[in-house]
């Protein structure tokens, strides 16, 4: 009699495991795409795999992965804000300290990249205190040490962190930092970027997009300014002078939904000195 029930139970067990087998590959794919830095695809796959995941820790890891990928992918502001809110929620609700720590660290890094170090500080402090793995704690500690050096008043809120960070200082000091990634553009470049913002918000909506190049001249200037600083000024002047000739030559057209554009990247005009071809 007992053996009579064993077979259906076994069959039921296998059926229950079936989604895990099927979706397991999706989680592996998300992991692979994330590790390779294919952010838009990693975001999509992680979201898909999280929907089908039955394990809590796996779902938390996939949620973290999807949110981080959404922040690193070229998404619009609303999507990025939603991803940031998801990471903040994950930091509050996650069961595993590792998930909480990684979420807090990523929120801190994201705010640092947006140039909001004072808002990043409490998230980095949370990541440091989370009891997550060494890489998370060390990365958060390195950022805190640097931010505390730049503005010592930040220590007032979290004075208890001073001693452990001072102890770890020899290890932390040489780690790569997000805080140092941000470049502060020179006065001339800032004026150019302000003009670009003015053009994009006030002039372009009225006259429509006139540029026939890819990327557009304003996007070209913003990209050049962030990558090459003051050299972006001669680069954009050269681009504006060349534009009619490039359009007239009509080589390698790109068919976009509302226009035909002609490729002219920043690298094509900096390869001879930037080392990027």
């Amino acid at each position: 009699m007992k053996s009579f029930w064993k077979t259906p139970l076994l069959l039921g067990g296998v059926f229950l495991c079936l989604p895990v087998f099927v979706f397991g590959s999706s989680s592996d794919l998300a992991e692979e795409l994330f590790n390779d830095g294919d952010w838009p695809a990693a975001q999509r796959e992680a979201q898909r795999a999280a929907t089908g995941s039955t394990s809590i820790s796996e779902r938390e890891r996939l949620r973290w992965m999807a949110a981080v990928a959404a922040l690193r992918a070229p998404n619009d502001r609303a999507t990025r804000e939603a991803a940031l809110a998801d990471l903040q929620a994950l930091n509050e609700s996650a069961a595993a300290p590792e998930s909480r720590g990684r979420a807090a660290l990523e929120v801190g890094h994201s705010l640092l990249r947006q140039g909001r170090p004072d808002e990043a500080w409490p998230w980095l402090a949370r990541a440091f205190r989370s009891g997550a793995s060494d890489p998370v704690v060390l990365a958060a500690g390195a950022e805190l040490l640097w931010l505390g050096r730049v503005k010592p008043s930040r220590w007032n809120r979290d004075s208890d962190l001073r001693l452990p960070l001072a102890t770890l200082r020899p290890v932390l000091w040489n780690l790569p930092l997000v805080s140092r990634e941000r470049r502060h553009p020179s006065l001339g470049v800032r004026a150019g970027l302000w003009l670009t913002r003015f053009y994009r918000s006030q002039i372009r909506p009225a006259i429509g997009s006139r540029c026939q190049m890819h990327p557009t001249c304003s996007a070209y200037f913003v990209e050049a300014a962030h990558r090459h600083g003051w050299r972006s000024l001669p680069l954009i002047a050269d681009r504006l002078i060349r534009e009619p000739s490039v359009v007239q030559a009509g080589e390698n057209p790109i068919y976009e939904p509302e226009r035909i554009a002609y490729p002219d990247s920043v690298e094509a005009h900096t390869f001879w000195w930037s080392g990027v071809r």
Binding site: G192, P234, A237, H269
Partner: peptide, 21 residues
């Protein structure tokens, strides 16, 4: 002057870049 600095530096940079191009 700001715009002229941009155009003039563009002329020098353009001369260099045009040779490479």
């Amino acid at each position: 002057t700001f715009f002229e600095f941009t155009w003039y530096s563009g002329s020098i940079y353009g001369g260099l870049d045009a040779g490479h191009r």
